[in-house]
């Protein structure tokens, strides 16, 4: 037991060291590193979603709301007050947490599809507000992060490497938060709610408070990632950061493809979905219009059909298979 935890810890340390060193093997202003950056970012986003959906089975389709709040908050503060995105990120996190708290109050009692639909509507409402309140957000035209000389303080870099480490750090932090929550009392309460909310209530779990706490943590972290996205992409519009397909559903999809409720699931999912989409685009988009999206969709459907519970479940299935085969 002790030895296996030690081995596991060692393995993780090696993996992390490899992850930190990877950018030195890639062209610092190249395409591969950009795709890896996005995969890291989306892995972190899916991990945020996993806190609520994976542990408490509260499937949200409105996480783009927090993501967009983060992106807009830091960028607007930067444009109007020259505030460093690092501080803007903290303000965004507070606002994202408040938004998560407010949306949690009325949706708390909803379950399953009803919760998903309510959160979906919340994300859309945020998109419509960002679209119409052009005095504040610049409206549908979108906003650009102002060009600044590259510096850590302004979270702007000429090369992609620093972004890579930023995204990697974000993923590590979010994953640690996820693991810590899962191991904590909060995690046990969340799982109790997942199994049976009424039973959890009966045995003394304050379900309302538990759900709100998890939602606020998830919302705050998602907002921080919105800031990272804005600083990486330099331009966004309401449809991009508040998008249902581009953000909300993608976060859920990545976690589901990888394995919902597990720490490694979102990471596996992101490193499958994001490169796959790029790969399909690279190979097929010059052949016929729309073919790349079709191929991407078909492959995704295939993966879900083979293992609806995601790669993590597939992994244990294969291990079982080999385990059986290996025994005399």
């Amino acid at each position: 037991m002790n030895r296996s935890t030690l081995l596991r810890g060692l393995g993780l340390a090696v993996l992390l060291a490899v992850a930190v060193a990877t950018p030195f093997l890639l062209d610092p202003r190249g395409y591969a590193i950009r795709v890896v950056c996005l995969a890291l970012l989306f892995a972190a986003m899916a991990q945020c979603w996993n806190i609520v959906a994976g542990l408490a089975n509260q499937v949200s389709l409105g996480h783009a709301a927090f993501f967009g709040i983060g992106a807009y908050t830091s960028t607007l503060l930067l444009i109007h007050f020259g505030l460093s995105p690092w501080l803007g990120m903290l303000v965004g996190a507070v606002l994202g947490g408040i938004a998560a708290f407010l949306i949690s109050l009325p949706t708390m009692r909803l379950k399953g599809h009803y919760f998903a639909l309510a959160t979906l509507a919340f994300g859309e409402v945020m998109r419509v507000i960002a679209n119409s309140w052009s005095g504040l957000t610049g409206g549908p035209v979108g906003i650009s992060v102002p060009f600044a000389p590259p510096s850590f303080a302004m979270m702007q870099f000429k090369e992609t490497r620093p972004y890579y480490w930023l995204m990697l750090a974000a993923l590590v932090v979010v994953t640690l938060v996820f693991v810590a929550i899962r191991r904590s009392k909060l995690g046990y309460r969340l799982r109790a709610i997942k199994e049976n909310a009424d039973a959890a209530e009966v045995i003394g779990v304050d379900t309302t408070r538990t759900k709100i706490t998890a939602a606020v943590i998830s919302g705050m972290l998602t907002a921080c990632l919105g800031t990272l996205y804005a600083q990486f992409q330099f331009f966004f519009d309401p449809d991009t950061v508040f998008g249902v397909a581009s953000i909300s559903v993608r976060m859920a999809m990545i976690a589901i493809v990888g394995g919902i409720g597990t720490a490694a699931g979102p990471i596996l999912g992101a490193f499958f979905v994001i490169p796959l989409e790029e790969f399909a685009n690279d190979l097929f988009s010059s052949r016929a219009a729309g073919l790349s999206q079709l191929v991407f969709g078909v492959l995704l459907i295939g993966v879900i059909l083979i293992e609806p519970r995601g790669f993590m479940a597939l992994g244990s299935r294969i291990r079982r298979l080999f385990g059986k085969g290996g025994r005399p």
């Binding site: 950009r34 991009t240 581009s246 989409e277 685009n281 690279d282 010059s286 729309g290 999206q293």
Partner: peptide, 12 residues
Amino acid sequence: ADSTSNPTTAAN
């Protein structure tokens, strides 16, 4: 190349 209608993809 196909940019789809998503700016993130277009930049990639």
